[in-house]
Each structure stands twice: as structure tokens, then as C-alpha cells.
Amino acid sequence: MSRVVEITRAGVTLGGRPIVRDVDVTVDSGEVVALLGANGSGKSTLVKAMVGLYPLSTGRIRLFGEELSRFQEWHRLGYVPQRSAIATGVPSTVAEIVGAGRLSRRKPFVPMRREDRIAIREALEAVDLADRSHHQVSTLSGGQQQRVLMARTLAGRPELLVLDEPNAGVDLESQQAIANTLGTLTAAGATIVVVLHELGPFADLIQRTLMLREGRLVYDGPPIDPAHPDHAGHHHHHRPTTPPLLRPGVRAPFDGGQS
């Protein structure tokens, strides 16, 4: 069992304000981990630090055993940002956006090879957008755009996927499509860290949840769904909820993970 993510006493300070504080998390190969928390709890900030977009103010992060500052094997990492601005500015096609996902494996000045084209096509097929490759991204629906972001990351064939709220503003059909894609990847051995507001269609995939509150890790253990009473409009079934084991500062022991 290899350690894929190792976060040790990590803190992130943005503009002088501590957002993430003293977080310890490890994720092993093949695990599917949901990172939950209210708005402003620091979950997005934590995953951005995890993929190297924010510097740490304290502690350290290792990916695949390598310090983030020295990390070079970017093709092993796949980040899916929340609500990217891909559809703004100069028009771009779905294929162009997804092609950017291959750059972790391509060298500068070397033209696109056959394997790149195959990876792009397969990534689009995986999110069910193969017929859209030459469409302008801004003419797609929000859910389809989120699937484009997903395909872009898949095109790089990463071992670790880090997704930031893939469900935000996305229709149920697309949510389900994304969850199905992740299911396939998990079966193939991928490691997944996904920031979620609620488990929703991901509930069956998640093996472990982390919960942040005010920048601190307050829960790490078997899946819980923060059953929000304000989702009466939903008609899917929340699974019978495990009582939320929210004991601040107490963490379930790492048992090496089962995967």
C-alpha cells in the first residue's frame, strides 16, 4: 500500500488570514476520499494547496512520496477545478480544452502524437461528449462544461484525481455521468480526493470522508453524509444516516486503509 498524499500539519494563509490550520491527512493508493465542510471551511483551499496552487504557511505536503516543491511527475496528478473560466474570452472548442490535459505528458515543441489524439477521444467518450469535440465550449450547458473539465483531466491519464466540487451548479444527469466515470476509474485503481457539499450521486463510491470546519480537520473516518435539511426538493434517497461523529480534534486512527 503506497502513500499517495501525505499532508502533515499543513496550514495555508491567504492575505494574512489563516484559512487552513494544522491539517494531517494521508490518502493511500486506491482510496476514494470525500472532503466535506460548509462554505468557507477551507476545503477548496486545502485541495488547491494539495495540487501546488497555494503555498503552505506551515507543515508540508508530499505527493507520491515527493515533496510538493520538488514534485515533477505532474502526469500522475489530475486536478479538476471548480467552475473554471474556460468558456470566457476567445472562443475555444471542446477538443482544444481537453487537449490541454495532455500537456502533462507532452514535451514543448513536439507536435501532438497519435496517442494524444486517442487519449483525448477516450476522455471525451468517458464523459459522453464525444460528439461535441468541435463545439464551442461556451455553447454547452453548465453540466456539460463540468464534464469537459473532467475530460481534460482524464486525457492526462492521472493516477490521483483531485476534484473540487464537481457537482456545483451541475444538473443531475451530468452529476451521475461524472460519478459513473469516477466509478470506472476507481475500479481501475485510481486514487480520488473529491471536495463535496453533500455526497449525492457519489455516495456509493466514497470509502472515507474528511470534514473540515473553520480550516481544521474535525472528522476522518467512514462515510457520513451531511444530510442537509434544506434539500427537500431532491427526491433521491439519502442513505440511513450514520450519526455524525463530530468530535472536534478527535480523528479516527488511520488503519492503513482498505481498498
Binding site: L53, W74, G78, P81, A85, S92, I97, L103
Partner: peptide
Amino acid sequence: FTLLPQLFSVANDEDYARTTGL
């Protein structure tokens, strides 16, 4: 033209481009 894919990726979504090692 030779660096078009890289330049496009950075101009289109800088954060994502950084996570691909650019």
C-alpha cells in the same frame, strides 16, 4: 505556433495549466 498548446493552456486556465507542470 510551436508553443501554441502550452501558451493556450496557460492563457485559458492558468491554475489548471500549473497542475500539469507548466
